[in-house]
Write a protein that binds this DNA or RNA. Structure first.
Lengths: 168, 168
DNA sequence: TCGGAATATCTTGACATCAAGAGAAATCGA
DNA sequence: TCGATTTCTCTTGATGTCAAGATATTCCGA
């Protein structure tokens, strides 16, 4: 049966308050989307802690991880990187500048398109992102403690259903 | 049976790439937390669109909504507001400044504590947040189209389990 | 082949956020 | 009652992000 009937989170308070003030509205979406956005906020903060041991920040990990999982030779264009990380082009220019000045990536001319460049992970960048990824996984695993394997699969499936419309 | 076996989202690509590069790691957490964080990012962007009709931005809604659901007389301290919205005190000072200059809230001295102030929703602020909230609910409801009522309840329950540890 | 439209990246200026700390008032133990 | 600690809000300076636009190159239809 589980403990659903005794568990109470911050969104229960929030939606109860809304229900009191606006009993005329259907607050269904609040139950899901407020939890999603608050969870994401809490997890961002926890992620920052997890990365502090590896000496990088979350935005750095996002870029390095995209390059890392692209596989050898760990190269992607800035355009591809910004689509993977959902930021604007100005932001990505700035991120690559800072990562390059730290020696974690380097810019190369794209041999196939003279407008373009390629961003490549350096050996230093690869070691950094590998260590950060392991720390992140370890931290995240703790947050899944309260969920059985079945529940984790269910949650994955439900989140995928929500995400599909956004995945072009 | 549903369509789980044919649905594929952007995180399926991402985790497949990781599995290829790091077959030594247990990537379970990625399936859930990457989806949470990417969903949250997409939803933030959608929220911005939903609010543009009401003439406010997401950060303004967050503050106005906290005051609105507090109920008459729609007053909270800055400290309470920053705990509800998970931002720092400097951010909240800045937010209240800008909302006050737009006439949506006003600052009052706290009669019970001379260090403190109270932030109160103006009638204009109340009308604004009520209209924005209805627009938000309408937009969010569309994203839930792909989930049955049962699935929405399941998702709510699973998200609550993840959120409880963060809800002090 | 040529010109317009699309694409790729970078630049600029404004702005929201944060971390750290300052100042004022309240609280609590001795 | 007094002093130390805590609480509450605001200030400051640095920084990351965005929107809009500039520049260079490629693509594509006529």
């Amino acid at each position: 049966m589980g403990y659903a009937h005794v568990m109470r989170d911050e969104v229960d308070d929030l939606s109860e308050a809304w229900a009191h003030e606006r009993p005329d509205l259907d607050l269904g979406p609040v139950e899901i989307f407020s939890r999603l956005s608050r969870l994401s906020r809490h997890l961002d903060l926890a992620r920052r802690d997890a990365f502090s041991g590896s000496g990088i920040e979350s935005w750095e990990f996002d870029v390095l991880a995209a390059l890392r999982r692209a596989g050898d030779p760990y190269e992607l264009s800035p355009g591809r990187l910004l689509r993977e990380t959902l930021v604007t082009s100005g932001t990505m220019t700035n991120r690559v500048d800072r990562l390059a000045s730290r020696g974690l990536v380097e810019r190369l001319p794209d041999p196939a398109d003279r407008r373009g460049v390629l961003v490549r992970l350096t050996p230093d960048g690869k070691a950094t992102v590998d260590s950060a990824f392991e720390a992140l996984l370890a931290a995240e695993r703790e947050f899944l403690d309260g969920l059985s394997g079945d529940q984790q699969s269910q949650l994955t499936d439900l989140l995928r259903r929500l995400l599909v419309p956004f995945s072009s």
